[in-house]
Structures are given as structure tokens and as C-alpha cells.
Write a protein that binds this DNA or RNA. Structure first.
Length: 479
RNA sequence: CGGGGUGUAGCGCAGUCUGGUUAGCGCGCUUGGUUCGGGACCAAGAGGUCGGAGGUUCAAAUCCUCUCACCCCGACCA
């Protein structure tokens, strides 16, 4: 077992940080709450990005880039927005050796500056919709930073769209929520619950916020991505007006949606174990590591290594470039080489030693289950993709089962408190309470409403207020 | 911002209460050797302004004052 990683049962926070350190995903930066995303972590992010970006483009969006600095006055144009974000903004007051006339905010999100630009770009109904995404960094001076989950600066994408009608904007909001769901489920193997946020959990300035909620292996919830229907709030604040087909001057309807490097934290906390990182193959920077094994350096160089390169070339043909690594750390003993890749979450290990050479086979070991087996060497191009596919599905199924096993139905607040205290996890039921009720429940139990799941439209008696006709809800303690 | 804790080698720690030669230990790292299919062993090494500043003292990792940083639990949040 890993000797450099705290056991998950012993101290979940320590375990989480140990896994990240051992896998070399990130390191602490000299500035509070900031992190350095190390090459392995960044490669992982690039794979996540790629999956989103492809789908954004498939749904008609284009990428652009807006500036990092935003005039402070922009933030103040939308009342709820400034209230929500001003406390956590970093502000630039000096530049060029002089005090600035107007302080500049380091963007915490870009609705304001993009709204400002859209007002210049939109005049006619023919200018709509605008479907823009940007990949960038943002800064939120959170009180309690945590690697990947809540860093002062983080990387994300933010989509900002403007539409002529309310219906179109709502449709866009839900379409992008579905894109998030698909990437998270199919690529990251994260079972998520798409749902609508309660009033108390809404994005500052939004009419409605949708979310993909996911359960970590300590049974706490993590908001993995959000999609906001902004109504005409930002259009009115920034004067995004257009003349309709009928000649009327109208405000546009806007949306925004974002997903961040927090997803890497979600990957760690969903799939990893006491040995370290476990990654779903589809986003793992290295999907397969080949280990030539021999005590004889001459045979290694002349026979095993060339053979390993042949296998690599064949796998490159089916997996795409740079997903296969040949381990050449010949100064290490085999056990050390195993652990090296184990801790970095490489989904599949292939061993090519003297035995395999003799038999004409490859031995494989799955990272997620430890399952071992072998197949004929010349079957690698068929067997490896099949194994990776199984790993991907099994990781998702395992996480889904964990969530199901840790989801409990309640019908009263007493039951709610009892379940939360004894088993934690997701609590389902009906909820029709107010913002004040949400606050009271949070103060009493630490749990918050995560969402009203879109997939379950039943109504019933509220577990808190007792009123009928309440919606299905999920409560949980959250990150 | 409230509560708790920690700063000594890359990482984890001992030493601090009770001041006293050259500041230790484990892991890791370097070199050599024996090993080698799930975290080996032997030997020799490298690596420290003890978080920072000031003070007390013949003498400070150790005592005093101030300060900074980080971690954990809350409130706030992608």
C-alpha cells in the first residue's frame, strides 16, 4: 500500500492533498490560495477542455477573449451581482506608478464586461443570437481556499450568450446544462444530477440557475458546473437593446454558463483510492504505460524496448497520439516503477518481460480494480481499447452505485436531521420552503439544498413546512 | 472574519517546558555494490541563516515582544 498517502478513512482532507501531491497535479504557489498547475495536472485539464470545447463548437459557439481587468463601476450596474461578487474581488488601484482614476477589478466572472461589449454589438434582431465562449482565468478571493476546489485564481470557461427571445435563452441555458452533463458523465465518469437551484443558491443576478451536482467519496456534494438564465437583468443593466423584426426596441435575453478546474478536484474525490490518483481513461493524459521488464540491460535495449515500441506504435494507431508511455526508468526496481504510475492514475499498465516475450503475450493490470490478466501481444490494438472502455464504464458505475447507496429519502425534518447525523450523503424529499427556511436548515444541520432534479417532476408534501405540492429536492452538505 | 493548530533539510517529525560544545531521526536525494515480476539491503555522501524582526543573556531552535505565513473547523463561494 502507498506509504506516502494518508488513508482516506483517517483524514479525508489530508488524503485529498496527498493524492494531488503524489500525482504531481498541482503545488502551492507563494501567494495565498493560489496554485501552480503542474504539467500532469495541466495535461488533464487540456483533455477536459478538449471535450467541452468540441461540444461548444458543435452547438454553434465560438471562442473569444475579453480582458482580465474590469472597471469597478461595471460591477455596480447590476445590484445583486455587485452584492454577490464585490466582497471577493481583487482590485487594482495603482498602475504605471500612479493611482488609477477608477479602480479596476480582476474579473471574478465576465458578465459585466461582456454585457458592455454586447450592447455595442447588438442593434438588430439580425445580430442575435450571440454565442461566445471564453477560456480564461478568474479571481475570487475566497476565505478558505482548497486546491482545485476553491483557489483564489482558477481556470475555467465561461459562455455568454444573448438572444432575441426568452424561450430561446431558456433553451440555450438547458442545452448547455445538457452539454455539461454529457461531458461529466461520458468523459469524466462523474454521475451528476442536473437540476435547478433554489432561490437561495442562485447566481447573483440570474433569474434561474441550473447545476450539475455530484457526490464525492466522502458523501459531500460538489457543484460541478452551472448554467444561468439571466433574464433581461444584464441586458437592462448594460443596455443590450435591439430592434425586433416588428420594429420594436427590446432588451435581449442572456445566459451564462461555466465549468472550472474544480472538475479536477471532482475527479480526484470521485475515483481515487488509498494508493493515489485514479483517472477515467477518456481524460487520462497517459492512458497506458508499457513496462519492459528485464534484469539484463542488453536484452532490454536490443529486444524488449524495440518490442515495446512496436506495441506503442500499434496502440497509437487506435488511441491517438501521446496516450501511451513506455517506462524507461531502468534505474528503479519493478515495484517502484509500478507505484510511480499507480499513483499518477494511469488507467492501464502493460508489462512486457522475459515471460511475456517467451509466451508472446502482454500482461495487463487495471489501475481501478487491480485486476490482472494477459492477452496475445498481437491482439493489443483490440484488447487495450476494450479494457480502457471497461475501466471507463466501471468507474462510472461504481461512482453511481456509491451515490445511490448514500442517498436517503425523508418525509420530515426530524428524519432529515437523523439521516444527516447518522449516514450523511444526499437526502431526497419534497421541499417547498423559502429562502429563510433554507437558511434555517443550513444553520441547524450544515446541509443546503443542492437542486431540484430536472428528471423528477413529482410533487408532494414538504418535509420542512408540511405544505403540499412541493417539488422534489436534494439536500446535502457541500463543498 | 471567529475558533483551534503548526512553522526546525525536498517531505514527515524529535529537540523548546528546564537556554550550554559541531541541531538530530525516518523517508526521499547522490555515488558504489548486492538485489530486482507489487514500495529491498549494505556502505559512503550532499543537504539547515531552526518562518521573520527586535529584545534579554557570557550564551537563544529553546525565554520575552512584535510580526508574517500556512493548515484544520466554521461563516462566504465554481
Amino acid at each position: 500500500m502507498a506509504k506516502n498517502i494518508t488513508k482516506r478513512d483517517e483524514d479525508y482532507s489530508e488524503w485529498y492533498l496527498d493524492v494531488i501531491r503524489a500525482a504531481e497535479l498541482a503545488d502551492y504557489a507563494p501567494v495565498r490560495g493560489c496554485m501552480v498547475v503542474r504539467p500532469t495536472g495541466y495535461a488533464l485539464w487540456e483533455h477536459v477542455q478538449e471535450q467541452f470545447d468540441r461540444r461548444f463548437k458543435e452547438t454553434g459557439h465560438v471562442n473569444a477573449y475579453f480582458p482580465l481587468l474590469i472597471p469597478h463601476s461595471f460591477l455596480e450596474k447590476e445590484a445583486k451581482h455587485v452584492e454577490g461578487f464585490a466582497p471577493e474581488c481583487a482590485v487594482v488601484t495603482h498602475a504605471g506608478g500612479e493611482e488609477l482614476e477608477e479602480p479596476l477589478v480582476v474579473r471574478p466572472t465576465s458578465e459585466t464586461i461582456i454585457g458592455h461589449m454586447y450592447s455595442k454589438w447588438v442593434q438588430s434582431w439580425r445580430d442575435l443570437p450571440i454565442l461566445i465562449n471564453q477560456w480564461c482565468n478568474v479571481m475570487r478571493w475566497e476565505k478558505r481556499p482548497r486546491l482545485f476546489l476553491r483557489t483564489s485564481e482558477f481556470l475555467w470557461q465561461e459562455g455568454h450568450t444573448a438572444h432575441a427571445t426568452r424561450e430561446e435563452a431558456v433553451e440555450e441555458t438547458l442545452r448547455m446544462l445538457e452539454v455539461y452533463r454529457e461531458v461529466m458523465e461520458d468523459e469524466l465518469a462523474l454521475p451528476v444530477i442536473p437540476g435547478e437551484k433554489t432561490e437561495g443558491e442562485r447566481f447573483p443576478g440570474a433569474d434561474n440557475t441550473y447545476t450539475c451536482e455530484t457526490m464525492m467519496s466522502d458523501r459531500k456534494a460538489l457543484q460541478a458546473g452551472t448554467s444561468h438564465f439571466l433574464g433581461q437583468n444584464f441586458a437592462k443593466a448594460f443596455d443590450i437593446q435591439f430592434q425586433s423584426e416588428a420594429g420594436q426596441l427590446e432588451y435581449a435575453w442572456t445566459t451564462s454558463w461555466g465549468a472550472s478546474t474544480r472538475l479536477i478536484g471532482a475527479l480526484v474525490m470521485t475515483h481515487s483510492d488509498d494508493d493515489g490518483l485514479v483517472l477515467p481513461p477518456r481524460v487520462a493524459p497517459t492512458q497506458v504505460v508499457i513496462l519492459p521488464l528485464s534484469n539484463d540491460q542488453g536484452r532490454m535495449d536490443e529486444i524488449l524496448l524495440p518490442r515495446a515500441r512496436e506495441v506503442e506504435a500499434r496502440l497509437n494507431g487506435v488511441l491517438g497520439p501521446r496516450r501511451v508511455l513506455i517506462d524507461t526508468q531502468f534505474h528503479l526496481r519493478p515495484a517502484d516503477r509500478f507505484f510511480h504510475h499507480l499513483q499518477r492514475g494511469v488507467p492501464l499498465r502493460l508489462e512486457l518481460g522475459e515471460r511475456e516475450l517467451e509466451e508472446g503475450t502482454l500482461r495487463y493490470v487495471r489501475r481501478d480494480t487491480g485486476e490482472k490478466g494477459s492477452f496475445p501481444l498481437d491482439r493489443a490494438a483490440e484488447e487495450v481499447p476494450a479494457l480502457l472502455g471497461r475501466i471507463q464504464r466501471d468507474l462510472h458505475a461504481k461512482a453511481l452505485k456509491f451515490r445511490q447507496d448514500n442517498t436517503h429519502e425523508v418525509s420530515s425534518f426530524a428524519e432529515f436531521q437523523e439521516v444527516l447525523a447518522s449516514s450523511g450523503g444526499f437526502i431526497t424529499g419534497y421541499f417547498g420552503g423559502s429562502k429563510e427556511d433554507e437558511r434555517a436548515i443550513k444553520e441547524a444541520t450544515g446541509a443546503t439544498p443542492r437542486c431540484f432534479p430536472l428528471a423528477d417532476q413529482r410533487t408532494g408534501k414538504c418535509f420542512y413546512t408540511g405544505q403540499e405540492g412541493a417539488r422534489r429536492v436534494i439536500f446535502a452538505k457541500a463543498y
